[in-house]
Amino acid sequence: MMRLDHGIERGRRIQIILDGERVDVFEGETLAAAMIEQSSAFRRDSNGMARGMFCNMGTCGECTVTLLPGGQRVRACLVPAQVGMDVTRD
């Protein structure tokens, strides 16, 4: 995975919490984009196999994560990263 930087300004570096760890991301990039920077694997399926995002357009649900403390289940490929977000992949 690579973030292209040639001639691009990405806005502020911010921190969000991902599975309890602080990670640096760019404000406004999608949570899914921030997550694949860490790893292309997002979760394990019922067979114990690693799984990642697939469609990047909100139709497959593979990137679903939970926002804390409210517990909302959201599709990470649709949601922009904002300061202070607390995200868990469970």
Binding site: L4, A33, I36, F54, M57
Partner: peptide, 23 residues
């Protein structure tokens, strides 16, 4: 279903809107 497999349109959208190349 392995991580790193995307729909091609989804991969293109990562490039267009997030300026990310996923490999």
């Amino acid at each position: 279903t392995l991580p790193g497999v995307y729909s091609a349109g989804g991969m293109q959208a990562l490039l267009k809107a997030q300026r990310i190349v996923p490999g």
